[in-house]
Design a protein around this nucleic acid. Structure first.
Lengths: 252, 252
DNA sequence: CACGAAATGTTAGTAATGAACATACAAATG
DNA sequence: CATTTGTATGTTCATTACTAACATTTCGTG
């Protein structure tokens, strides 16, 4: 039957992410190349795959949504963010209830988490979708208005939502850090949400790559003395190390 | 400069979604085909595009995330759903406040909506992300627990959230329709949310492809007499047409 | 200025593709 | 029951797009 084979072809592509024509022919020796070609044509029309020269790719595999979501933003400092994510993962224990903020650094941290029993709250739909691939997570989105710039949910509803939950550890991202203004971000509502989370969480962990240092953005949402751990990819400048020590903020 | 041109090529692809080699050559007459080819190769390695025979596509455009999210689901009826979506779009007017349910049919409808001043509430993070590409929309997510099976937000929080909002038109999807059990779906919490929305909305529009007819799923969430419009891709069987007439439900 | 490295251009061979036509089979029609 | 229609498939073949390999230019750096 035609549709059975098509589904089989589709499944194969979804599973592998990408197949060459030759592989397909090997898997389906009973039908001709042309038939498989036509199957691919069909699946492409259905929006399940893209045909590339010599084979086809699964669209699902391609859409590691990052590009879809933060469109114009450059892909910067991936390496640094990976380091930060790796450090942060060690702070989490199975069974905990954690909050993961929006932003690329936090999103990488989310992806680095091992599949274990965790309750995860996040205001980032993209992170939620990524997380949903690991079946042990219980995922909760804050809800509210979706801010296009940051792909973050904010506003009255988001805050209402958070009030009823308990958070063991909050992993927060930041737009900037300066000695004068502390941790700052560019959106009022996001700042408010961060403040609320920081107040509610047992433990607050800030994830920040060093490129954020010595800048300020409009809204201060916390300072070194209110957070418990600050994770960066490498050593901070001396004045920040001193400030952190004074504020009893652990550096990782 | 090489990087400038690459960025320009990338932007062009991101803007158009897809370009043919010939178009690229027309846009960049100063460089050879081969250079453009190498640019595409580079952009592909960066994860920004996929090269297809004869040109390239933007990954951002492809990540019509639907498949990323409903992974295992079989290939179904895209054509039918497109027809339904096209019909439904006509019911919406600028300035309205609408609810868009989760599910592939509703998601296609969402994508078919023209960019106009609309307040849109949805329990589907995927739909929210899709919608965020159209800048005139005000997008609101219900929040709550993310159900992996359906990629839908449900639960206490989602319902709390909805209570405070006013909806002009609700576009609802369904798992099945039968004469005995009415419209049914497979998840208790989703059924509850749908019920609530149907109660709150001024007008209720059901989007359903005909393959859903004559089946039942565990939870009934509404019946023909509670909805105002039922949109399908083609004529319904006679007994359903009669039932709809009796229930004063418009068929489109 | 000279040198190597990177970017670009040129060419030619090849492999993938799609169009056109042919066949087989099933369903619909008379 | 014969005929028609439609769908799925196979086969062939010309076209085209692609890559690899090599040649040339441009650029940056000592």
């Amino acid at each position: 039957m035609a549709t059975e084979r098509r589904n089989a072809v589709n499944e194969l592509i979804q599973k592998r992410g990408e197949v060459r024509m030759a592989e397909l022919e090997a898997c389906f020796p009973k039908v001709s190349t042309m038939t498989l070609r036509r199957d691919l044509e069909y699946l492409e029309r259905e929006g399940l795959i893209v045909r590339i020269r010599g084979g086809a790719k699964s669209i699902a595999h391609l859409s590691t949504i990052k590009e879809a979501a933060y469109p114009q933003r450059q892909v910067e400092n991936t390496a640094a963010k990976q380091i930060i994510a790796a450090k942060a993962v060690n702070l989490v224990e199975a069974g905990q209830s954690i909050y993961i903020d929006s932003g690329t650094t936090c999103s990488m941290f989310a992806q680095a988490l091992p599949d274990s029993a965790l309750f995860i709250l996040t205001p980032a739909p993209i992170t939620a979708i990524e997380l949903s691939k690991k079946p042990s997570f219980k995922i909760n989105l804050t809800g509210g208005h979706l801010n296009r710039e940051t792909m973050t949910l904010t506003g009255f509803n988001a805050q209402e939502h958070v009030r009823g939950l308990n958070i063991d550890i909050a992993f927060i991202g930041t737009g900037a850090l300066s000695l004068n203004n502390g941790f700052t971000c560019g959106d009022y509502y996001e700042a408010e949400l961060k403040k609320l989370i920081i107040r509610k969480a047992q433990r607050v962990v800030m994830l920040m790559d060093n490129s954020k240092i010595n800048f300020s953005m409009p809204y201060t949402f916390t300072r070194l003395n209110q957070i418990h751990v600050l994770i960066t990819e490498s050593e901070l400048p001396d004045e920040y190390v001193r400030a952190a020590q004074q504020a009893h903020c652990q550096l990782l």
